[in-house]
């Protein structure tokens, strides 16, 4: 009986702790949206543009090489896997369709989000967590600054801006990867591949891909910041929160992707 009690107790506590985390994260997101969209117009506190641009460089510009490299390889891999199947039907030209559509609709945004979550989401958690440990967050509050406006908004805005850009780069480079294989291994001509890709892609593919990135950006910024704010207990706490932020971000990104894709699939086809 004691065992059952303990088990039920543990499950209940775990459930409640998850619910608390979720509700607090939603609260932080609401707060961040308020300080991003509403507060500047009420004259309560301007957006810190200098810090925002600094974050754009850190999160966006500095991620270009790794995002581009990974997406090029993924494009290449996909083209090879597709060619392996399509060649049997003499339809290797459809490699262009497959790579183009799957990169823009799905893999470009998703891979970018996962890379940025690992690279910058963790950095956000670590930075804010270290500030929490050093009493810097308390110092901000006593000086009359809102930590959300000061720390979360610049990172949130930067992510909202750079993630779509990075995704576009990822789409392009991924298609280039497929193109690379098609031209050098499948003997498809340069123009034919390009025409095929252009024919296969419609605006809807690109747009649905980009729309997703705004949700991904929100998840990465808010999870990272939240994990930073709840750090407790010095360097070890920072490490733990950093790890949790990456795992949670990636999990939520996949969930959000699933929901977005399901909505697009059922409404737009």
């Amino acid at each position: 009986m004691k065992l059952v009690n303990n088990m039920l107790g543990a499950t209940g506590r775990l459930f409640f702790s998850y619910m608390t985390h979720i509700s607090r994260m939603i609260y932080l997101t609401k707060d961040a949206l308020y300080w991003t969209i509403i507060a500047p117009f009420q004259g309560k506190g301007n957006i810190r543009w200098k810090s925002t641009i600094h974050q754009m460089v850190l999160i966006g510009f500095n991620s270009i090489p790794i995002v581009a490299t990974i997406c090029f390889f993924v494009g290449l891999i996909m083209a090879m896997q597709a060619a392996y199947q399509l060649e049997r039907f003499g339809a290797s030209i459809y490699v262009a369709d497959l790579v183009g559509v799957s990169m823009t609709r799905e893999l470009g945004p998703l891979l970018t989000a996962i890379i940025v979550a690992g690279r910058s989401g963790s950095a956000i958690a670590a930075e804010i967590g270290t500030m929490k440990v050093n009493e810097e967050i308390d110092a901000l509050k006593t000086m009359g600054f809102n930590p959300t406006r000061f720390l979360v908004v610049p990172r949130f805005l930067a992510l909202l801006f750079v993630l779509p850009c990075l995704s576009l780069i990822a789409d392009l480079v991924g298609i280039l990867g497929g193109f690379f294989l098609a031209v050098f291994s499948l003997n498809i001509s340069f123009t034919r591949y390009l025409n095929q890709t252009a024919e296969a892609l419609v605006m809807k593919d690109l747009v649905t891909g980009i729309v997703k990135t705004f949700f991904f950006a929100t998840i990465i910024a808010q999870v990272g910041a939240y994990q930073g704010f709840i750090v407790e207990g010095g360097a070890e706490g920072v490490g733990k929160s950093t790890t949790t932020s990456v795992v949670t971000s990636i999990f939520l990104i996949i969930i959000a992707d699933l929901i977005c894709t399901a909505v697009f699939y059922s409404t737009l086809g």
């Binding site: 270290t130 009493e135 810097e136 308390d138 901000l140 000086m143 009359g144």
Partner: peptide, 18 residues
Amino acid sequence: LPIRRKIGMLFQGAALFN
């Protein structure tokens, strides 16, 4: 806020923005 602007606080670990 108006009160916060007229109080200063020296933290134990200095808490400078690094």
